[in-house]
Write a protein that binds this DNA or RNA. Structure first.
Lengths: 111, 111
DNA sequence: CCCAACTACTTACTATTTGTAACCTATTTT
DNA sequence: AAAATAGGTTACAAATAGTAAGTAGTTGGG
């Protein structure tokens, strides 16, 4: 019952990243801003959840929604400075996955 | 619908860490092996879910369950090499949270 | 020996979150 | 005008998480 012992900031960070899709969305926005449809296709998430997640990420200040009033209107989602600063985290997860996740199998250990 | 474009290893890693409690459990086991009751208290997770998560983590080869046949029996959970190799990831999340999460508020930016 | 307490879970049930599919509005192409 | 595309929202079923109580194997006391 005591959720002490753990740094509340770390807990907050984990409750952000430890939510389904969130990490993937941030990862996909790392290189360049993307549009709603592009994200659903690349990630394989439903519109309902993508919409929900993007709203949360906006509220947390990680993602920014920009409307370009061209014709037709174009809407892009990009990372804020706070969001972009997760790059080292993403890089480390990538590195770990390269070393410890077998591509096809569900195996345990690298060469 | 196409979940291509994303490295399947990265996806696998994210689906591990992007699950509620998993990151916190790994983090708590980083320093030293712990017992079931200790984890529930520190993390604030229910027995049901802790049990489930630990089983999954065992299956994924991240956590090891050791039974010490003392009297009374003592059961400890520890990280395997694969689990321990997530330390850089945890460290980066910690670093990020120190820089970008305000302790009391839900604020946006560091000093 | 019997009863309470402790650890490590499991089971039953409820609440919340996800996933699926259909729908909506505005614009644009055929 | 009809169909298509972008960017969503809504309604509902299915899966997952949370809560509380129960179980099994000790241990310690009366």
């Amino acid at each position: 019952m005591k959720s002490s012992e753990i740094c509340p900031r770390f807990e907050a960070a984990i409750s952000l990243l430890g939510q389904r899709w969130t990490g993937l969305i941030i990862h996909q926005l790392m290189d360049e801003p993307k549009r709603f449809g592009q994200l659903t296709e690349e990630i394989g998430i439903s519109g309902r959840l993508l919409s929900e997640r993007l709203k949360n990420l906006e509220n947390d200040g990680l993602v920014e929604r920009t409307v370009y009033p061209e014709t037709p209107v174009r809407i892009e989602y990009s990372l804020t400075e706070k969001g972009a600063s997760l790059q080292p985290v993403m890089k480390e997860i990538e590195r770990w996955s390269q070393n410890w996740i077998e591509p096809a199998k569900t195996a345990e250990s690298p060469s």
